[in-house]
Design a protein around this nucleic acid. Structure first.
Lengths: 137, 137
DNA sequence: CGCTTCATGACAATCATTCTCAAATGAAAT
DNA sequence: ATTTCATTTGAGAATGATTGTCATGAAGCG
């Protein structure tokens, strides 16, 4: 059920560096950020390369992608390979992974009831985490 | 909870034209598309103006906004002012409005259980409508 | 080692969206 | 109707993320 369509890709220093940078992060990071992180760590990796790898990794299901409010794509190494969603803090970026079978079923059902097939869905929840809830304006 | 924060805005020819163009459409349209529609209809409206109004209308809850897969913002005049979600056809763009109290509650609950407050959520479902399902590969 | 193929990197090119600011317009006062 | 003043508009520049191009470099293999 978790068929990794992992395209045969060649391991490179850059790819490893990107994967590691992502593994270190606890929140979602944009391609630009990853690129900057690597640069400041002395790791020279082309921006285009970061984009390409991040996308490839996302396609292979190695990492998760979501869109920020302003349309930027941000990536994160997910703890599980299984399908899940996130609750992201608007304040600090903290991202919690959650599963939602109920929602999956609902999406499938409601879509089917309108005659839709090959259903996919996007569910993202955001708010303020406990910490950020306290000192917010 | 459904307070219309309708900012006091001045009615203009442009705004009306945009609203109408949106009302005529049955699917989600991008600012660029609206702009093109108006132009080809002989309605001269600046692109920036289209963007500004669309955003204002979205903020006021007059129209709905969602992001396409490639990050473009698309708008639609919603039939209801109440909170709802969409099932969009990847083939023809057909958009069906659906409500999902169960999902709303789930989002709130799951977020709260992780200490989050001021929860918001995004839920979009897409697939192939009955018509597009038939002739697909 | 030499070859073939895929990945990389520097930078140009896209493209949606936003910004700038002078000119036009709506609303209300005179 | 005319003045007045805040908003809104529009044309085009500016921004910024993402993608494309293509010569160079590294990986896998015999």
């Amino acid at each position: 059920m978790s068929g990794q369509a992992r395209t045969e890709r060649r391991p490179t220093r850059q790819r490893a560096a990107i994967a590691e940078a992502l593994a270190d992060a606890t929140e979602f990071r944009s391609a630009q950020e990853i690129h900057a992180d690597l640069a400041s760590a002395g790791d020279r990796v082309g921006l285009a390369t970061v984009y390409r790898n991040l996308q490839a990794m996302a396609t292979d299901g190695e990492v998760d992608v979501i869109r920020t409010a302003d349309g930027e794509s941000v990536y994160r190494a997910c703890a599980t390979e299984d399908h899940h969603h996130h609750v992201v803090c608007r304040g600090c970026g903290l991202a919690v992974e959650v599963t939602a079978d109920a929602v999956e079923r609902w999406a499938e059902t409601v879509a089917a009831s309108h005659g839709f097939t090959q259903v996919r869905h996007t569910v993202e929840v955001d708010g303020l985490c406990r910490r950020c809830s306290s000192g917010s304006s």
